[in-house]
C-alpha cells in the first residue's frame, strides 16, 4: 500500500467510527462495559506508543537520550506546564544530550 492509501484508509475508518455513534440508538450501547473498554483502549494505546517511541529503535530496545527527555516531560506535566512547552523542552533535552555525547 502507498502512503496515500494508508492515510485515506485510516481517515475513512476514523470518520466512520464517529458517524456510527450518531446512527445507532444510544440505549443499545449505553452500557458500562463497552464504554469502559473504549476508555481503557485509549490509555493502553497511548502508553504503548510512549514505550515504543522512548525505547524502540527498529526491532531493538535501546536506552538513549530519549529516556531522560521523557522523564523531564513527565516532571513538567506533573507541574502542569503547558503541552507545547513540554514537547519543545523534551526535544531540546534529547538534542542537547546528543550534541554533548
Amino acid at each position: 500500500m502507498t502512503l496515500w492509501q494508508l492515510i485515506i484508509l485510516a481517515s475513512i475508518a476514523c470518520f466512520a467510527l464517529k458517524f456510527v455513534g450518531y446512527l445507532i440508538p444510544p440505549a443499545l450501547f449505553a452500557r458500562p462495559r463497552p464504554a469502559r473498554v473504549a476508555n481503557l483502549l485509549t490509555i493502553a494505546l497511548l502508553a504503548a506508543l510512549i514505550a515504543v517511541q522512548t525505547f524502540g529503535q527498529g526491532e531493538k530496545l535501546v536506552l538513549d537520550a530519549r529516556v531522560p527527555a521523557v522523564l523531564a516531560a513527565a516532571g513538567l506535566y506533573a507541574l502542569k506546564v503547558p503541552f507545547i512547552v513540554v514537547v519543545i523542552v523534551a526535544a531540546g533535552v534529547a538534542a542537547g544530550i546528543r550534541a554533548l555525547t
Binding site: A10, L17, V20, G21, P26, L45
Partner: peptide
C-alpha cells in the same frame, strides 16, 4: 502500514461513545 491504520482506528474508537453522548 496496517498496524498504523489499526492503531489510529483503535484510538478513534472512543469517539463512538462521544457520538452516542452527543446524539
Amino acid at each position: 502500514g496496517p498496524s498504523a491504520v489499526a492503531s489510529a482506528a483503535l484510538l478513534g474508537s472512543r469517539n463512538v461513545f462521544y457520538a452516542l453522548r452527543m446524539s
